[in-house]
Amino acid sequence: MKDDFEKLLDQQPEKEPEPQERPALRDIPVREELVPRTVTAPDGQEIRIDPLQDYYCQAGPTVQTPAYTRIIEDLFNWARAESLWILGFGTGCGAIEMRPLMTPRFDAYRYGIQWRPTPRQANLLVISGYLSVKTLKRAIRSYEQMQNPKYVVGLGSCTINGGMYWDSYNTIKRLDDYLPVDLYITGCMPRPEALLQGFDDLKKLIRAGKAEGANKYAENFERYKTNQKRVIKDWDMPDYSW
């Protein structure tokens, strides 16, 4: 299995491939809508479409440095810290501990923490527990669609070292290999109080300007991608989801 996969990795061309070369890659099972195809336009013209090339932006992420003077950046960092919008994305058992935060007993809204349904508007991705390879794919796409600056919190021991799934055949072990984690909250599973404490620590990191995960991701893009592709066998998505 591993050899097969390395073969696949070798086939990943360095530069943008010629259309004729692409079918060689198609040993990877690809979703139907992503298969290159030829369509006939209403005026009879034949158009060749390679969805992965044509429908997606090919550029990678760029590093976005703090653009303003110290004082304004500090103000912005404070605002970012006090307005954490969590992407409503639950993986693993830990997701169950996020729900009490929205309810009267723990009520995280008091601390400026809100849940947003779309990655575009969120700035905090909470990986709440074990991450199966299949979910990792979705987590990566969601993470990449969030806008800089963005933060990742790993919840529970599963995200740190695999936890009780350390020898599982289809979960990843160290989340930090695949996404730039700003903060871990330990426990199996952590209580809502631990989460609140964790968010509080994250706020401190953000205020200090130390939570630059998005830039880390952009700087080490190659490494993260290699790691991600090492476990995701059916990589049928663009390298970076804008």
Binding site: Q64, L75, G112, N148
Partner: peptide
């Protein structure tokens, strides 16, 4: 704060 936060996002598409 939310308003300020959203204006301070660095990237947009």
């Amino acid at each position: 704060i939310d308003l300020l936060k959203n204006y301070s996002i660095r990237s947009s598409i």
